[in-house]
Design a protein around this nucleic acid. Structure first.
Lengths: 352, 352
DNA sequence: CTGAAAGCGCTTACAG
DNA sequence: CTGAAAGCGCTTACAG
């Protein structure tokens, strides 16, 4: 079961190991690399000795010798939301399946140059960015990578024209939300944490405006935001506070569109605390379709990001660049989200 | 702003780079390693050239040459709960502050040997395990690491006697919960997902039994579990289903202790769906004190794991082993959790 | 299968 | 500051 013979000091080189097994360094190397023309008996001998001694060849030496590092760098936003974590997890799994090792690091504003240098010194073959970063700083990093010839992909951050990007079409998601709510008779909308500057034409605000226009509902009169009244935090508490403010309005909206599930859940909490019934007196929608959406009271209508698909396309875009001549044009791939309808919008407002 | 001069092919060695700058290889190396006795002008020259060319020294060569890898391996459970993610994040941050790079990988049952070999081939200086793994397999890995002389720490998994361990005292947490509920008049308890096999004397069940005994409440009569009726999943749905089963009992318990917040929230959902008022007709408690606990209706009483403290102690235990002779005795450090009381238990049952 | 040799990109004395 | 040299642990032809 355990090793028969444990050297006090572990073996650290093939030379030492070869001596231990009684074979030539070359032969050991061949076995380690699965090269042909070796007696099964020799292979077995080496493998048993590896088990017994726990010897592992020094990865730094192996890779120095020109062997591909088979490593990718993953640069994460420093905000571990459930959604971000799911993406990270899916991404690492995808790379593992392709026999790539992932180096995971957190992007800290102002420190990103150093981070990329670390990745490059580790000779990663490609870098993926997940999340939202200061646009100008990220753009600089992308330019450097392009100049350097290191492949990349940016997930969820669409504001960098020179970058290869994969993102869910948030505009599409909000169009679906608005259409759904308009069909339920809603004509007035409270926006919770949603502003125009995010993601441009693929952004939520763009989708809302487009959908309202399609229904001949003037945005200025139908949609309202109170974000400016509170410090933006994108969490439960922020949603709760926003809802409390909306609750005091004499002509408050009948439907509330939140930036994410946390804000939506907080908003439901806040509205209910003010004695407002959901969905009877107010509809609320989230974004991300986290599991918790099925456990709130009422359950929460939300937009699913289709994370698996996003990651599938992301890795495809990334790995497709490795070993290829640099692309002249930046790639942009969008993923269609999916509206999941639950109780929080399950009420039809009577026409006035 | 951008580089003045971008070589078509990036510079890949100090030799090439030194030629580019017009200095000796030795001098460049000195600058890179911040060695004394260099003219400020030379340093500046090298640094500017690095910026311009994007040259980074090959980490594999640097580390081959005997320099410490300053790398630790983090082995995660393949279950990214909010709590697990918080730990991972705190851990990586802690290591970064000590100038260690983290290699993060997922422990897959049956594949762990290979994973550890990968870490060892990367010459990590220590390995931390976070989460719950098959005990026998983990124990084997720990024995191998001990034989190999590589430091380790196991967080949250206390069943491996030969391992250095850091864990929250779950028994203590449940003692606090039971004491709180008994003080509120509860005498009958439903257990949701809690079984005896977990964590031995530091486990939840042990704490519950101990606390009940202290109040002279016979466990067999006061505590009840219906876990066996459903497939264990430790998620919202599991809690909901368990609650539905409890709701049908003629003499159902007045208090419910859940393994985690997800199960507790699911259970509240299930009890409420059966028309049972919380906390008026049933008290519910969770474990982990996730943010969502403050956003449920009613808000959820839960036990906080004190993650930051756990990670602080964990890194202390781990880094304390590096460069030291191996410990003869396994370390076990426990962290005291903290009960956070909220609405879900805020009702005193009348004495009968 | 063995053995001697070159080379990957770095660091580190050592002599100028 | 420069330059030549040794060595880290591996892989890969090459000749036996």
């Amino acid at each position: 079961m355990a090793a028969k013979k444990k050297p006090a000091r572990p073996i650290t080189s093939t030379a030492e190991f070869a001596r231990h097994v009684g074979l030539a360094r070359t032969t050991v190397s061949r076995v380690l690399n699965g090269q042909p023309g070796l007696k099964p008996k020799t292979i077995e001998r080496v493998q048993r000795a590896m088990d017994e001694t726990g010897f592992t060849p020094n990865a730094y030496a192996v890779r120095l010798k020109g062997k591909s590092t088979a490593t990718v760098g993953i640069c994460m936003e420093d905000l571990l939301t459930p959604t971000a974590v799911k993406k990270l997890s899916a991404l690492q799994r995808a790379f593992r399946m392709k026999h790539y090792t992932s180096l995971i690091e957190v992007f800290e504003p102002g420190q990103s140059r150093q981070l990329i240098r670390h990745f490059l010194s580790m000779r990663v073959e490609a870098i993926v960015f997940i999340g939202h970063f200061p646009a100008e700083e990220l753009a600089q990093r992308i330019d450097e990578l392009n100049a350097h010839g290191t492949p990349h992909v940016v997930i969820d951050h669409v504001d960098i024209p020179s970058a290869h990007r994969v993102t869910v079409d948030r505009a599409r998601g909000m169009i679906d939300v608005v259409n759904h709510l308009v069909a339920r008779g809603h004509r007035s909308f409270g926006l919770l944490g949603i502003s125009a500057w995010l993601h441009g034409k693929l952004g939520r605000m763009h989708g809302i405006m487009q959908a309202l226009a399609a229904h001949k509902l003037p945005f200025a009169q139908c949609a309202r935001s109170l974000d400016h009244l509170h410090v933006r935090r994108n969490d439960f508490e922020f949603g709760k506070t926003l809802a409390a403010s909306f609750a005091t309005l004499p002509d408050r909206p009948t439907a509330y569109l939140a930036l994410n599930d946390e804000i939506a859940i907080g908003a439901m909490h806040g509205l209910q605390a003010a004695g407002i019934d959901i969905p009877g007196e107010a509809a609320v929608t989230g974004f991300n379709n986290q599991e918790i959406c099925a456990m709130t009271r009422p359950t929460l209508t939300s937009v699913d990001q289709q994370i698996d698909e996003t990651i599938r396309v992301g890795t495809e875009v990334l790995l497709g660049q490795i070993g290829q001549p640099p692309r002249t044009k930046a790639i942009l791939r969008t993923i269609d989200p999916k509206l999941i309808i639950r109780q929080s919008t399950d009420f039809t407002v009577a026409a006035r």
